[in-house]
């Protein structure tokens, strides 16, 4: 019983992390139809900022965390301004290639100017302490992760439903030109999408750092891959889909870890992706893919 509870909590906390990552991709995709593969490098910027803060500024973890989130948010907005704005109305493939380009450039900057080797940050280890909750031993990191994700989701839902700019972002996912025709500035909507994406990347980088304890130039590769898979399963362009896909991916991963015999441990990812593939056979556009717009004269 205790074992089951523990694994459920594991699944939820993995799922929470993936949901956070997937939302970062989905929010940009929903507004501009761009799969931002440079999201992983934005996460890595968060990691390196923590290194820099810990080494040069302070050991206060709160300041380190705030610094990392601020840095990823600024990086994300800066990337929109410099790299993605010029290709905003171009073909989706152009955007995708731009994202890969940005990703490669940033990775090489990390390699050249920082270090190809992992750099450790120890200031966040305290986040990952064992806690007893209702007789089940879990990590405090899992609690932080789950609570943060819930707060982010609630905040995002409120923002998207209550504020005019949030409504405009949802409208933009359907018909961006019509949003511009109401006078709402496209630049603001795009910048905001990237700002939110950057904030989410920052939070994710903190949790990844707390778990791994070090950062290298490929820090963001695995997270962005998980985010991409979660978005595909949930339905690209759908924010609830991204959350659902994230939690589903977390659940399937933990289930495979638990259920597969020891000898098959190395095949975990193969089984995970096999199950994901089956889901896609059932729903090729993802579980919660947004309905296609059927205009009456286009």
């Amino acid at each position: 019983m205790e074992y089951v509870a523990q694994q459920v909590i594991n699944a939820l906390s993995f799922g929470a992390e993936y949901a956070l990552l997937a939302l970062g991709l989905a929010i940009v995709f929903s507004v501009m139809g761009l799969v931002n593969f440079a999201h992983g490098e934005v996460i890595a910027v968060g990691g390196y900022t923590m290194v820099a803060f810990a080494a040069l500024v302070t050991a206060n973890p709160l300041i380190i965390i705030v610094g990392a989130v601020a840095a990823t948010a600024m990086t994300s907005v800066a990337l929109e301004r410099v790299a993605f704005r010029p290709v905003r109305y171009a073909d989706p493939t152009t955007g995708l290639l731009t994202a890969f380009g940005v990703s490669i450039v940033l990775q090489n900057l990390f390699l050249l100017f920082i270090s190809p080797r992992p750099i450790a940050v120890t200031s966040l280890y305290f986040l990952d302490a064992p806690v007893m909750l209702f007789g089940v031993q879990i990590s405090s990191l899992q609690i932080f992760e789950s609570v943060t994700t819930v707060v982010v989701i609630v905040g995002l839902v409120l923002f998207l439903q209550k504020t005019t700019l949030g409504l405009a972002m949802r409208a933009a996912s359907l018909d961006f030109e019509m949003v511009r025709l109401t006078g709402i500035r496209a630049n603001r909507v795009f910048a905001l999408a990237f700002l939110i994406s950057g904030l989410l990347a920052g939070l994710a980088s903190v949790f990844i750092m707390a778990r791994r304890g070090s950062v290298d130039p490929h820090f963001g590769f695995n997270p962005v891959l998980k985010a991409f898979v979660a978005c595909v399963v949930g339905g690209f362009g759908s924010l609830p889909g991204a959350v659902l896909g994230g939690f589903l991916l977390g659940a399937v991963e933990v289930a495979m870890l638990v259920l597969l015999p020891q000898d098959y441990g190395g095949l975990k990812d193969a089984f995970v992706f096999g199950i994901i593939a089956l889901v896609l056979v059932w729903r090729p556009d993802g579980i919660l893919s947004p309905a296609r717009e059927k205009g009456d004269k286009q």
Binding site: T164, L167, R170, A171, L174, D175, M178, G295, D296, K297
Partner: peptide, 25 residues
């Protein structure tokens, strides 16, 4: 201000939200 061809209502948003976006400026 324009009411475009095909109307282009934001079909995923409520009627009230459509009006609020119209007043976004």
């Amino acid at each position: 201000a324009v009411s475009p061809e095909g109307r282009r209502i934001f079909s995923n948003l409520s009627v009230e939200a459509n009006l609020r976006i119209g007043a976004g400026v």
